[in-house]
């Protein structure tokens, strides 16, 4: 059991982070808190992808004249990294749109509390 936890500790931590993020998005009533939760969730997915590609004896995937370029075992797979760069872009774009919405919600209702908002929408 201990070994199982030890071997996969990164994944367990990531799962906990995901749950924290989901909790923030779904159960927090304040819209800013929801966005904080969203950031946490997105970061945890990024960690998940990066952790999946990592290996102990690999090095960063940057061209280094001193090392052999031909041996892929020496490098960490860079594909998940590029994917995550894109995911970060997507995340920041989402955040931007979310803030535009947030401001406009506040401008119209003077509150950021979801419960109050839903009541006022009726």
């Amino acid at each position: 059991m201990i070994e199982f936890i030890q071997g996969y500790y990164a994944y367990w931590a990531i799962v906990i982070l995901m749950l924290i993020g989901l909790y923030g998005m779904l159960l927090k009533r304040n819209l800013v808190k929801k966005l904080i939760g969203m950031t946490v969730l997105q970061s945890s997915v990024i960690l998940l992808f990066v952790a999946s590609g990592t290996k102990w004896n690999g090095t960063v995937p940057i061209l280094d004249v001193g090392r052999s370029v031909d041996d892929p075992a020496l490098y960490i797979n860079p594909l998940p990294h590029t994917l995550m760069l894109t995911a970060i872009v997507v995340g920041v774009a989402t955040l931007g749109v979310a803030f535009a919405l947030l401001i406009s919600v506040y401008r119209r209702y003077q509150t950021l509390d979801e419960k109050t908002l839903l009541k006022q929408m009726q």
């Binding site: 779904l26 997915v45 989402t94």
Partner: peptide, 30 residues
């Protein structure tokens, strides 16, 4: 008037959906 609130709620749920998809994708990629 209520459109931004609706859009915001959509955004939260939509992002959760997209993230779920991405997590699934991570496992598949692994």
């Amino acid at each position: 008037k209520p459109a931004p609130v609706a859009a915001f709620r959509y955004l939260i749920l939509g992002t959760i959906g997209a993230t779920m998809y991405l997590i699934g994708l991570a496992f598949l990629y692994m």
